[in-house]
Design a protein around this nucleic acid. Structure first.
Length: 260
DNA sequence: ATGCCGGGCGAAGCCCGA
């Protein structure tokens, strides 16, 4: 089973690119972030025409996440527990009902958190704490589990082109990295890093200043796998193709392959 | 570099992203 994650930076603006990539890459499951639209305006029919069923946690203008799957989706849950008034659409989870026993997946869009020292950064850290608590509960089920999406965390300095340029950024703060590391150490495997020794490999390149052409990027889109999913992990790759296309998202897809 | 691009909203210019 191949599971991909992609921050598309508006599903409506990106629809031709997304449909082309779905036809070419044909993942079994796709975790989308920043769809930037409500379920009413989500291009469900075009995506269903390619054989996918859709589960959507949408929001007008900002955020929004979705799960696309060629197999049926069960037990769809919107939002992390204990939101306490949080109205950002940044989480959706579901169980993929497949012959191999299936897998639970979540599509997450972790808050950016800039500027550091503001309520936005506090919101990022609080969201990460809520995520850690829910992840502990999910791990307790001892099932194959894949948490994928835009984590807005640069795990280490060699996951970006210029650590000095990112030192003051919310994505590289010790408080952000510590929470990410603690989550991994609570029982997950970061799939791409587990399978790759290469440094300075990226999933995001800014639109500005020719960042993609100069490969000035950061690695912030990740998969965290439970032990039961890690046992089945066969590959994890970053697909740079879509970032080079006209009208690209500033993120490119990442995917992992689980053995049946 | 901190808004140089790009998207949403809505019909100009501002908010937001990372």
């Amino acid at each position: 089973m191949r599971i991909a994650a992609w921050n598309v930076n508006s599903i409506r603006a990106r629809l031709p690119n997304v449909l082309e990539w779905l036809r070419e890459a044909a993942p079994d499951v796709v975790l989308l972030q920043e769809i930037k639209t409500t379920e009413d305006s989500f291009p469900r029919l075009e995506i269903e025409d390619l054989g996918y069923t859709c589960a959507i946690n949408g929001q007008k203008t900002y955020n929004g996440v979705a799960i696309l799957s060629k197999q049926p989706l069960r037990d769809v849950k919107h939002d992390l527990p204990n939101g306490d008034g949080d109205d950002h659409a940044r989480w959706i989870e579901a169980r993929v009902d497949a012959r191999d026993g299936g897998v639970r997946v979540a599509s997450l869009y972790l808050p950016n958190g800039n500027p550091v020292g503001t309520d936005k950064f506090a919101y990022k850290l609080a969201w990460m704490d809520r995520l850690a608590a829910h992840a502990r509960d999910l791990l307790a089920a001892e099932e194959p589990l894949v948490l994928g999406g835009d984590w807005n965390v640069i795990p280490a300095d060699d996951d970006c082109h210029d650590p000095a340029a990112w030192a003051g950024d919310a994505l590289a703060q010790p408080d952000s990295r510590r929470r990410f590391r603690a989550l991994v150490h609570s029982g997950f495997t970061e799939a791409w890093r587990a399978l790759h020794d290469e440094r300075h490999i990226y999933t995001f390149w800014d639109y500005q200043a020719g960042a993609y052409q100069k490969d000035n990027g950061i690695r912030i889109d990740h998969f965290l796998l439970s032990p039961q999913a890690t046992d089945r992990l066969a590959a994890c790759e970053i697909d740079r193709g879509p970032r080079a296309r006209p009208k690209a998202s500033d993120h490119t897809p990442i995917w992992c392959e689980l053995r049946d």
